[in-house]
Amino acid sequence: MRLVAFATALAAGVASSFPAAAAAAPSPVTAWYMYGSSASELKSYAYARGCDFARAQPGTGLRILLLDFGAARKLDSSIWGAVDFSNTRFSNAEIVAALERAADGYHNCHVRGGVEIVYGNSNYHLSSSGMSTTDAWWAGYHQAERAEQLSDYQAANGYDSQTADAAADMEPSWDGALITRQLVSGNEAQGWALYYDFGSADGCPQSGSGDGPCNNGWRVGDVGYVSFSGLALPLPEIYYSANANQWTVVRKWWDGTQGGSYFFGGVTASTGVGLAPAAAWNTLNSLNSGLVEPELVCVGC
């Protein structure tokens, strides 16, 4: 009701910011690091993760099932994919086959709500694997294409409680800003999928609103670009209060230089770090009131 009232005010032209989101942290949902030694194993695990997610899904809302397949890679002259956390290389065709099994698993075990199944990868050592900036652009492009392919599969099978998108763990420390920005630009050029940035603003300043330096030659503006330009949406890792401070600087920089409207698609949290998942969401929200969507993706929960 409060939001509708806000919308009324908005339509009347008396407000100009993103409306208030939830006041308290949502229940966390589990994100998975994908380890596999074969395509068939990857599919069977993805099916199980989709089913697990559906059974445990809290509430009746739309939640993100993030499957992180490792680092984006060009596997040969015309094949794109990822190298996973066990050092196994999977093509995008193999990854989307696994994602389709996750969709099947969610469908078979569906209890309530809906799901956005997200093809995640990262910018880990793109350059040192031999990828050029053009290769990274195509990696983003094809990743978005595969998310759309997954959505087509969901629609064709009557999985109306599902949709699909893409994501990347974009970490300043893992590769340069120029090549990482190309992942986002490629996704934007394909034009279909949201591109969640579930990475960090590592090394960025914790106060102010300027284009200050971050790790590895990045600047605040680079983090702003990879997290909010085009179809990008920030789902930032908030593990310590310093992370929330850094992302607040990114938001302020964007709003100050790019015309406002920056908001967070939610928070990525973890166990075993400084902030418990709910505290992570609450800390970011306390610094960006009403600008954090009620999504809390958690590795280790």
């Binding site: 194993e41 066990s86 050092n87 050592h125 420390s173 890792e237 593990y239 590795v299």
Partner: peptide
């Protein structure tokens, strides 16, 4: 219901992971 894939558990022999293998944990941690 959709057909469920057969569970295909494949062991991964114990191995060291060098810096070329992706790390899932954020460098901020």
């Amino acid at each position: 219901p959709a057909p469920a894939p057969a569970l295909d558990p494949r062991p991964i022999p114990a191995r060291m992971l060098g810096t070329d293998v992706p790390v899932p944990v954020s460098p901020s941690v």
